[in-house]
Design a protein around this nucleic acid. Sequence first.
RNA 1: GCUACUAUAGCUCAGUUGGUAGAGUGCUACCUUGGUAAGGUAGAGGUCACGGGUUCAAUUCCCGUUAGUAGCUCCA
Length: 643
Amino acid sequence: MIKITLKDGSIKEVEKGISVIELARNISEGLARVATVAEVNGEIKDLRYCLEEDASVNILTFDSDLNGKKAYWHTTSHIMAQAVKRLFPEVKLAIGPSIDEGFYYDFDVEKPFTDEDKEKIEEEMKKIIKENLPIERFSLPREEAIALMKKMDEPYKVELIEDLPEGEEISFYSQGEFTDLCAGPHLESTGKVKAIKILSSSSAYWRGSEKNKMLQRIYAISFPKTSSLEEHLKLLEEARERDHRKIGKELDLFMTHQLVGSGLPMYLPKGATIRRILERYIQDKEVKMGYNHVYTPSLANVELYKTSGHWDHYKEDMFPVMKMENEEMVLRPMNCPHHMLIYKNKMHSYRDLPIRIGELAHDFRYEASGNVCGLERVREMCQNDAHLFVRPDQIKEEFKKVVELILSVYKDFGFTDYTFRLSLRDKFDKEKYFDDDEMWNSAESQLREILTELNLNFYEAEGEAAFYGPKLDVQIKTALGHDVTISTCQLDFLLPRRFELKYIGEDGKEHTPVVIHRAILGTFDRFLSFLIEETKGAFPIWLAPVQVKVLPITDAHLDYANKVKEELEKIGARVEVDSRNEKIGYKIREAQLEKVPYMLVVGEKEIEENTVGVRSRAGGDIGAVKLQEFVDKVSKEVKNYTK
RNA sequence: GCUACUAUAGCUCAGUUGGUAGAGUGCUACCUUGGUAAGGUAGAGGUCACGGGUUCAAUUCCCGUUAGUAGCUCCA
């Protein structure tokens, strides 16, 4: 039995395994309006997933629960649909769910909404809120539901109802003249919504398939208080300020040019410095862990990818074939095949495994034009790639080591905002995923077991696996709100077969190794974009392109400034002298905006006392310190791979 | 790739209801030799992304290309 605490404090008991809709019917008519989110044994959960085990459930309301916002936003999405219907009666309604931050509604409309349209819609929404229309829920049998939607001339709703599974309750919500097919939950009336804001409009395919019609989507958000809305808009503004494309330009890290092409960024000296340090950092770490690095060409015969199977899956996204005299070449989209051949170059004993082949390898993918984004999504990338060739009995240990490496790297950078995703295949997609149920089931369950054993907090996602095997992906959210993969570790039983890889086992017979594909920093490009957004350009000192900037007060102090620079260069620091004929306040301002970790002001006083006037990026003016003392202090900071 | 929007000085942007353009900042020179987030003056810098079309005349209107932005789709 499940013990349910309702928002009014009353307690009810229900059978476990009950659906949310049954629950709503059995316990309280208003329940589905209250929340589909609840506190279960102390944890906040989506109610739909927590009715299967014995539990004590506390139904949460909007005020006490962040997730309760969903009911709130969902209600506002109906208000938006109602406003659109009032202003543009010919519009057909698609869907309008709540999302992580706000909600959207998709409309089928002849002409996309203009800014003026959106202003009018927002005004109309405010009117509907003022009208404080009560929200009524009712349900209909399937045929009657379809008839109602046909009568209302809402073809998308008819399609939705037709696709609902047999036996599912078909519920509607009404407010004033407006009725919409909806599972809920909703607030009691439109007047409960206070502050609203239309954020943006765009387009989206009906049911998320590019084969379908393109609909117009409006994103919006709402809050019970105006101040919360203002706070939210401020956060959005801050995220825009963190955008790596903006900071990358401001700090001279990278550039792009029309003549070079889309998705082909060029690293400027400062960005290249960071990248060089990142490359050394990760390779040093890998060497310590027994990786062997190789260099392989960025070009290959197209037959290589036909052998691996990549050609069938990804030829559309590869740069086109270059036909030469008697062969056809392509720019490589990934490195696995090259590394497979390196493994195959030699006969291996079971004693040789695991073999870890690593490479900082350039790959080329013709990303669709609309997908290209700064350093986040590019057409030529450099991967921090490696392939581990292991015996089946070594999978667990090697996988574990990779996860440890990932965790250690994230710790070095101080990253905490990431999630682990177990990426599984979509069982019904026989086209994308290699069709061998036994192989998949085994690989997926092994991977799940490893992650559970590692005590990793992960979520599962179907349809996110590679065509050859399941993956552990490390996901982060960019400043723009994109959910992207940084690190990945993949289990592959397929490619070793395709390339007929072998090792001689203890039994003297041939066996097929298992391959673990992994990338820790992912691509240097995307990693740098993440690093920029996480640090807002204030890189940890060991990565800062300029670690110390010496600021002479006047020209008369230039010699001493250069001497300070030399002393610091002896310990390997990256130092610049600002020798311009400018006032000290101006030089400080510029160095500060460049986010240089240490600024050293030098003038008469410092020369006399052989000191430097230290100012730190974060802490401001620190005061005079003996030059040698400062050099000693930073000698470790500038080189150590730590935050 | 799809839908929409955008492209003016190195950067951030204004402007022209069709008659070849302006600010701030940066850059250069000069003055200022200044002590912890912007000293002053002057100057240089633009085929108004590119290619067509309409027009007496196009940076402005139309079409295409390239590049960018938002979302969708895709992501080995």
